[in-house]
Structure formats: structure tokens, C-alpha cells
Amino acid sequence: MSRRFGPAAVHVILIAYSLIALMPILLVVMNSFKARKAIFGAPLALPSSETFSLIGYSKVLGNSNVGMFFFNSVSVTLISMASVLLFGAMAAWALAEYRFKGSTLLALFLSIGIMVPIRLGSISILHTMVSLDLINTRLALILVYTAQGLPMAIFILSEFISQIPKDLRDAARCDGVPEIAIFFQVIAPLLRPAIATVAVFTVVPIWNDLWFPLLLAPGKETQTITLGIQQFIGQYVTDWNSVLAALSVAILPVIAIYLIFSRQLIGGLTAGAVK
């Protein structure tokens, strides 16, 4: 009895959780295809032939600013992700592989970053960016997001690196492979599943962030999509068609990133490397 009951209960909980998590997204996407009246009239109804409307999408996609916001978001997110992955993997390898003065201290320092939210430092980050003259640049966001993502990335990647057999790098050293190539050509390919995990975990909070764009890059030219959508929300009237359409479009890149990396998430770590 209890044997059959265990997995079933777990599935019920998971399905319930998925529904709760997916519901708002479904609601947003559904209503983005409806005319304004229908959004308010029957928010839970599917779009029908009478209520179907692409007005939100045509407004959003026709708005030249939205394209720019999108570009800002994509570039900031991708460059931040790439930096987090590159520097995170290199740092994790260095901390695992090389003993140098202060390496323990450095590892400790990085682990503090996991526990202390970066937003606590917003004021001093703002000060720093002002004095570096980086306010209203995408570089400011990239720097902050890289710093935000690195501690967790290093933590996860270190775990994976410690599972890679030491013989592999020893064999490469005997083989005359330079240290830099040992990392990039022997170790990094084995880290692909871990890198995919870290990529997904890194991208989502960056893409969704409203705080730092508001603080560091609120200028018209540098707004990200999350910030840009706010312009449709007015004090007196909110253009819900546009808001919902913009939100729906904004979900797509995250889904794309997930699809790209989820294939990497599966698959053995070192199948065939060692017995």
C-alpha cells in the first residue's frame, strides 16, 4: 500500500505545483490574444473567434522602442551569462586545481556571495557606477550581473569538477598538453551538463530583473524589456493588450535558452573516461 502511495502522492503534489506555477503564465499568454473588452469581461476564457485580437502584438512589435528594449535585454543577458560561465568555470577550476597564497580565503570570500544578496550593496554599487561614469550603460548591468551570478556558478561547478577523475588531467600533463588547453579542451567539455545547469540558473534572474535596470540604466536608450514594459502601465490608463503581449514575447528567449541547454542537462558526465 504505502509503496504505491508514496510516488502517487509525490506526483499529485508536483502536478498541483506545476499548475499553480503555470497558471499565471497561461493567463498572460491567453489574454494577450484577446481584445481589451474580453480581457476584462472574461479573463479566464480562451480567446474565441469574437474575442481574438492581435492588437497588443501589432502595437508592441510596431513600437520601435520595444525592439531596442529587447535588444538591450538580450545583449545584457547573453554577455552576462557568457562571463559568468567563462569566469565561473575558470575560477572553479583554479580553486580546485591550484594551491596558491590566499586560495582558501578567496574560496571563502566567494561563498559569502552566495549567502548575501547583492541588492544589499545597491547604494554602494550605484556610487561606484556613478564615479566610474557607467550610469545608463549596459556595461554597468553586465558587471553587476556577472558579480551576482559568479558565486553560485563557482559553487556548482566546483562540485562537478571534484567529480572529474584526477587521472585525466594527470594524463594530459604527461601528454604535454598545456595547462590552458587542459582546462579548455579536456575539462570544459566534461563540464557541459554543469555549465548548462548554471546557464539556466543564471539567465532567469537576470532576464527578469527590474531592480538594477531601474537603478543603473533607466535611460531611454538602455532600458531592458522588463523596465520598458512599464511604459505601457500608466497612472490612469494601462494598455493591457500591449503589456500582456510584451510579457508573452519576453518569455520566449528564456524558453529558448532552456530548450538549448536542456539537451545538455541530460547525458553522462564522464561516460567512458574511466572504468
Partner: peptide, 8 residues
């Protein structure tokens, strides 16, 4: 090596 340590 005992574990072969081939590049997988």
C-alpha cells in the same frame, strides 16, 4: 593509468 584516463 589504472583508470585508462582516456579523453572521453
Amino acid at each position: 593509468f589504472q583508470s585508462y584516463a582516456l579523453y572521453p
